[in-house]
Computed example of a mutant assay.
Amino acid sequence: MASLLPRSLLSLLCCLFILAPRAHADSAAARLTQYLPSADFQADVMQILPPKVIRQLHDRIMASISQHQEWFQQYVAQAKQGQPLPYHPNFGITQEEYQSYLQGSRRFNLTRTAITQIKVTQDKAGNVMLSNLGLNPPYDHVIYHPATNTVSFAKVELDKFQLVNQQERNSITGRWHGAQWRFDTVSKDGKIQQYLKFAIGQLEDKDRSLIYIDGRTYDGELHNSSVVLMFDSPRAIPQ
């Protein structure tokens, strides 16, 4: 079914953008606690959003569609699969604005939407927990296990480890290097049922670090909890 800008698209792009660059597997599973802060710290909660003017157009379209729901259902049913909906005055914006909307919806910015105080705790075994990560439970904390170089996230062990070396200056995050841990399950028909990812690293052109968290489940519909956190580069946890 064709659509304007699915609400899930922003979340989907957030899932894909940050680790699209080359990721290099490390057979030695090097410990990367140098990227983890050793004390509580403040972080900017970032979301991938289209430009403000595009969000305003989107709100106007949605408000107008809500007044023409029966018409909209019929209009969508007649549309071509995989194609943007043709312009119609019932969208509540002009044809020129609609063209700007379609073009601008492809350009996204990393925008700060909140600030969070991340809590760092370490147990006697050296496991490090980061909590208050700006998402709802169970996505609000992760535990890093240095002994096995794995991450516990949403009650699942993320055991697929890769080093990341992102060198595209024009990417949303800019250049950065670090590590990622992930877990995924695939159904018999090849569809991903659950996809969990945690990444942490150092920006190369700024004295800042980032954390990227992605939790996705599919049950015929996408459910996504994703966030990017950026913060001043912390001192490493003593090894």
Rank of each mutant, 00 (worst) to 15 (best):
I48R: 06
L49A: 09
L49S: 10
P50K: 03
P51W: 04
V53A: 14
Q56Y: 02
Q56D: 06
D59K: 12
D59F: 09
D59R: 15
R60I: 09
I61V: 08
M62A: 07
M62V: 08
A63P: 05
S66Y: 08
Q67W: 00
H68F: 09
Q69F: 06
Q69M: 12
Q69W: 01
E70W: 02
W71P: 04
F72H: 11
Q74C: 01
V76H: 03
A77K: 02
A77C: 02
Q78D: 15
K80F: 03
K80W: 02
K80Y: 05
Q81C: 07
Q83E: 15
L85E: 08
L85D: 09
L85V: 04
P86N: 08
P86Y: 10
N90T: 08
F91K: 07
G92D: 08
I93S: 03
T94W: 10
T94C: 11
Q95C: 10
E97G: 08
Y98D: 04
Q99R: 15
Y101D: 04
Y101I: 04
Q103S: 15
Q103V: 06
Q103D: 12
Q103R: 14
G104N: 09
S105D: 06
R106K: 15
R107S: 15
R107Y: 15
F108M: 12
F108N: 08
N109L: 11
L110W: 07
R112N: 12
T113L: 10
T116A: 09
K119Q: 14
K119S: 13
V120M: 08
V120Y: 06
D123V: 03
D123A: 00
K124R: 10
A125F: 11
G126V: 03
V128D: 03
L130P: 01
L130G: 01
S131E: 08
N132Q: 15
G134K: 10
L135Q: 13
N136D: 13
Y139N: 10
Y139G: 00
D140F: 05
D140W: 10
H141F: 13
V142L: 11
I143W: 07
I143G: 00
Y144E: 02
Y144N: 03
Y144H: 06
N149H: 08
N149G: 02
N149R: 03
N149L: 02
F153W: 08
A154G: 07
D159I: 01
D159G: 05
K160A: 09
K160I: 02
K160D: 10
L163I: 11
V164K: 06
Q166V: 01
Q167G: 06
N170D: 15
S171C: 07
I172E: 12
I172P: 07
G174N: 10
